[in-house]
């Protein structure tokens, strides 16, 4: 799932300062699941910015709408009526949704209400951890099903490095939380699987071109000729 966090409200208020009427657009996909951009958060942000602008004596009208997925044009079409009524949109979808909704309504300015953080798993209520980097060249077969790109701070393909201490990564300290050493995790998993020999296999340098955008993915067997 794509994981996002809410943007500081002062930033959002700055973006929409010139406007009198805005639409907050939520998404029922990943950002609902990661508790950042569903109908509930749309309501909370709407209430907050209404009050903020009332306090400044510069009343703001806020419309609220949440649809299935902002990364699909058909769902974005449902925003048409409300987009027509407002000066600007604040989208609480991930970066993909924000842009794609914006593409649908090119004459209405769109602003991000969230920062898109990572591809992660929901460990428990209120906690998410990165698991995939979308590098385009998966090596999980060689690493016991644990991704060295996403989970090693240096994305080393042949680890661990000297900064692995007692199972933790040396970069832990500045970010306060203990980060497990990705390569320790790989070692432990391979050990449990009886595949430790894979540790001595040198993984050759990756084709990082596949990790660099702009990327497009086309399946000729599926594309429709709409002419």
């Amino acid at each position: 799932m794509i994981v996002a966090e809410g943007k500081p409200v002062e930033k959002i208020l700055e973006m929409i300062a010139p406007y009198k009427k805005v639409l907050i657009a939520g998404c029922r996909g990943c950002v609902t699941v990661c508790l950042t951009g569903g109908e509930k958060e749309v309501g909370i942000l709407a209430s907050q910015i209404r009050m903020a602008r009332s306090k400044d004596g510069n009343a703001l009208e806020v419309l609220e709408q949440t649809e299935e997925r902002q990364c699909d044009a058909e769902y974005n079409a449902k925003f048409l009526e409300n987009v027509g009524k407002v000066d600007a949109i604040v989208s609480l979808a991930c970066g993909i949704g924000i842009q794609y909704l914006g593409e649908k309504y090119p004459l209405t300015p769109i602003y991000p209400g969230v920062n898109t953080l990572m591809l992660g798993a929901n460990i428990d209520v209120g906690r998410w951890e990165e698991r995939c980097f979308a590098c385009g060249d998966c090596v999980l077969d060689k690493t016991g099903g644990i991704c060295p790109i996403a989970r090693c701070s240096k994305s080393l393909l042949n680890g661990p490095c000297g900064g692995s201490q007692f199972g933790k990564c040396e970069v832990s300290a500045p970010v306060k939380e203990d980060i497990p050493c990705g390569w320790q995790l790989i070692y432990d998993r391979l050990s449990a699987l009886g595949q430790l020999d894979k540790m001595s296999e040198i993984i050759p340098a990756k084709n990082w071109l596949r990790a660099k955008g702009p990327r497009t993915y086309v399946r000729e067997d599926l594309t429709l000729d709409r002419s």
């Binding site: 029922r28 609902t32 699941v33 508790l35 950042t36 569903g38 109908e39 509930k40 958060e41 309501g43 949440t66 209520v125």
Partner: peptide, 11 residues
């Protein structure tokens, strides 16, 4: 009603 208050989709 804890579930209703936690639901991110207001479902």
């Amino acid at each position: 009603g804890v579930c209703a208050a936690e639901c991110p989709g207001k479902a």
